[in-house]
Design a binder for these strands. Structure first.
Lengths: 264, 264
DNA sequence: CTGTAATCTTTATGA
DNA sequence: TCATAAAGATTACAG
């Protein structure tokens, strides 16, 4: 191992930083060498301080600067523009501590009142960091999540390799919408295999009243009388399993079409 | 003004506080006399630490406690319950400072990684305070806003999106054997829908050498050239999806056969 | 949640 | 065809 060229894995993320944010850029430079490195582009930005993707725009606000920027209405203005442009607008507050409140003569109530408003309206995500370095780390993490990790990984679905076949099947079917282990177990048990469960969902029809409201279901799954399997279950999972309406884009469209065409 | 009985205007707000939050209650007691006084009720709460209305539930987390509660999955659990019950779930982080990070052995990246996730998903509001007193102030402000001011407080429920359809699909396909988020994402992307992935697995054959060793695969998935999809992947998942060789027994065999027979 | 190490699978290469 | 090594992905575990 000694002398070996054991290469550590490095992920590169991109971002655009307002050209006035000198310290932040220096900090990113300094942090090169970590497991995630930020390859930023410096540019004059009107709306945000840092942009990570089309969706995510960040307004960075130093703790000492926060109170005054609230009272003179600068921050609310910036944020209202931010939220109009970015789907995920983030206010990043850096280094807010007791000291800050001591020094500024601003009424504490106005500051927390404003933060309370943000929390209630839920239009902006508030992100707090301790100091400049942590701000950089936080931005790296946001970029990593947005650019590298992408797939939700909402719950890391690690099905133990040593599980029985039945357990693995239940686990798979649990991935359906509105389906916990209980429902999954019964479905597998009734229909035999996961493939049959899929097929059953495909072949089950939703019945409507004359006014267009869902009335019930018709088909195989009607006979499986368990709570939780009704029109909603069928509709949602049909969409999940079969709907073609989405346009993903990792691979070239041509290759994709070629591959999909070979499916019978 | 001197000697006059000019009564200061006082607003009274109400809240329910978990009976284990002693310091917080003491702090509210101490603050009586301010322009907003909290008339709290102490009660054992299961899912929040402070409740301000049927809409707003607050989970209070001390800075020093934050890192560990993330790594052992306590916080994610608490928050997921919180957001199920309250329309406006709030995580209140108190006294997060440099000291805190020094003391815990937890990786900084983990903490900001989790906060980044919260910010991106926008399911809960994060509220930061400097210390206990400020936590009390913040809660007063929230309550004031909700109970007294009332104006337009309630959220626009902007993006209720729990997860995108794509994420749900990846989640489902991850249930296959030897399939993590990477492989799942590519499969969905290539084949369009989960149903197509299943179909593709069904239609892919495993090739053997004359001596009976697995040589490769033939079919649609051959064209999806990614590491991780070979004979093993096909064999294991075919068994998972299609093999009928198992006999579970929740339901009577007769019913089961009747149901399965109706599948085309 | 992140980092790292261990394990497994496919793929490329050489005999 | 077999054997081995390299590359990539997933799983398990610790902090």
């Amino acid at each position: 191992m000694a002398g070996g060229v054991k290469t550590k894995k490095i992920d590169y993320v991109k971002g655009i930083i307002d050209d006035r944010e000198h310290e932040l850029m220096r900090m990113f430079d300094k942090r090169r060498g970590g497991s995630v490195v930020m390859e930023y582009e410096s540019r004059r930005l009107d709306i945000a301080d840092i942009v990570i993707s089309d969706k995510i725009g960040i307004e960075r606000k130093g703790g000492p600067d926060l109170p005054s920027s609230i009272t003179d209405n600068r921050l609310p203005d910036q944020l209202s523009r931010l939220k109009e442009v970015y789907e995920v607008p983030i206010l990043m507050i850096e280094g807010l501590n007791a000291q800050v409140f001591k020094e500024t003569g601003v009424n504490i109530h106005s500051i927390y009142g404003y933060l309370a408003k943000l929390a209630c309206k839920r239009e902006i995500s508030v992100f707090l960091t301790v100091d400049l370095e942590h701000t950089a780390i936080a931005i790296e993490r946001l970029a990593y999540r947005e650019q590298i990790k992408k797939t939700s990984s909402v719950i890391a679905r690690s099905c133990p390799k040593k599980a029985t076949l039945m357990e693995q099947r239940v686990f798979l079917i649990e991935g359906l919408l509105n389906c916990g282990d209980k429902t999954a177990k019964i479905l597998i048990d009734m229909l035999g295999t996961p493939a049959n469960v899929i097929k059953a969902i495909e072949q089950t029809k939703v019945l409507y009243t004359s006014t267009g409201r869902e009335k019930g279901i018709e088909g195989i799954l009607k006979q499986v009388r368990i709570r939780g399997i009704g029109p909603q279950f069928i509709l949602q999972n049909k969409k999940l399993l079969f709907s073609q309406e989405i346009s993903p884009n990792i691979v070239s469209k041509l290759t994709k079409q070629k591959v999909q065409k070979t499916l019978i």
